[in-house]
Amino acid sequence: MGNKEQKTNPPSPPFTKGGSGGITNSKLKTPNSELKIATRDAYGEALLELGKKRNDVVVLDADLSCSTKTIKFAKLFPERFFNMGVAEQDMIGTASGLSLTGKLPFASTFAVFETGRAWDQIRQTICYSNLNVKLVATHSGITVGEDGASHQALEDVALMRVLANMTVIVPADGNETKQVVHAIADYYGPVYVRLGRSKVPSVMPDDYQFQRGKAYTFHTGKDVNIVAMGIMVSIALDAAKILKQDGIDAGVINMSSVKPLDHEQLLNAAKACGLIITAEEHSIIGGLGSAVSEFLSEKHPVQIIRVGIRDVFGCSGKPEELLKLYGLTADNIVKTIKDALNR
C-alpha cells in the first residue's frame, strides 16, 4: 500500500451508487429467500453425507480445511482425509493417484490456489488422463472480502473452462451446492466446482434438481434475459423485480452448468428478446460472459452485455462494499439494461 499512483486498483468504472445490497439483501421473495447459507458450508455438510453413503470418497485439503469446511469430513472420517499441507500441486497429484486406485477424491482449497497454483497439474494429469477427480474450491470472487486481491479468484472459471474434459459448475445457493456434490459424485470425469465464502440467500426452488449441462430458467423475459452464475443469480432476480416495476420484462437464468453450457435454454432466451446480460462475480474475460458470447455469436447473434469484473484486480473491503464498488449490484444491472434498451 502507500502507492498513491496505483492506476488499476481500485477501479473507477461508472457504477451507480447505492441499490439493493447484493448478498446482504434478503428482501427477495423467492423460495426460501430468508434462508442464508454460504455455499462452502453447504459443501461441508454435503461432503459429510456423501462420505456416509460412499466409502470410496476421499478428501484432500491444503491446510485450509477449516475454511473450506472439509474439516467436517476430516473429523468423522480421519482415515479418508489427507491434509497435504501448503502444497497445492502435490495435492492435485495425490488426488490423481488416489483416483487411479478407484477412489473418488474431492480436493479443496481456495479457488485462487486450486486453479492458479496447480493449473498445470490439473491440465496435464487430471484432464489429459481424464481422471475422476473433483476439484471443489471455495473463496471465489471478490466476496472473499478483507483478504484482498491475492485471495480473490476472478479468473478461475476461465482457467478451468478452457481445459478439455473439464466440467465447470457454479452453484447459486446452498441447496444447489448440495445437489451438485451428489450429482458430480455419480458422474465420471474431472469437475471444477466454484464456491464462495459469504452467505447467500436461497434462490432455487425446493423441488429443483441439478443436472450437469442443464440451466434453470426462472422466467423468460420478452425484453431482456439475464444469464447469471453463483451469487449473481440472486442479484439478477433482484434486478428483474425492479425492472418489472418499470414495465420491463426481464428473465433470469441460473447457468450453474457453465461447462457444458445449456445451449437450448440459452437459445430460447436469445430468441425471446434481443438482449442478453451476463452476470458473474468473475472477470468478464473468459468466464460466463465469454462462454455465452462464444455460443450465441455463432448460433443466434444478439446484443450481449457482460456484467462482471472489468479486467482489474479486486481489493480489500466488506463483501457488500466490494459488490457495489465493482458494479455487481441489482442497480447496476438495471442501469445497464435501461441504457441498452434506451428506457
Binding site: V58, E79, R80, F82, Q89, D90, M91, I92, G93, T94, A95, S96, G97, L98, S99, L100, T101, G102, K103, P105, D120, Q121, R123, Q124, T125, Y128, S129, L131
Partner: peptide, 25 residues
Amino acid sequence: VEVSTGSLGQGLSISNGIAIGLKMD
C-alpha cells in the same frame, strides 16, 4: 500406461496417491 506424463515433476505426487490408495485397500 498408468497415467499421462510429459510435464516434469508430477509423477511422484501421483505415485503417492496410488500408494495411499493401495494401502487403504
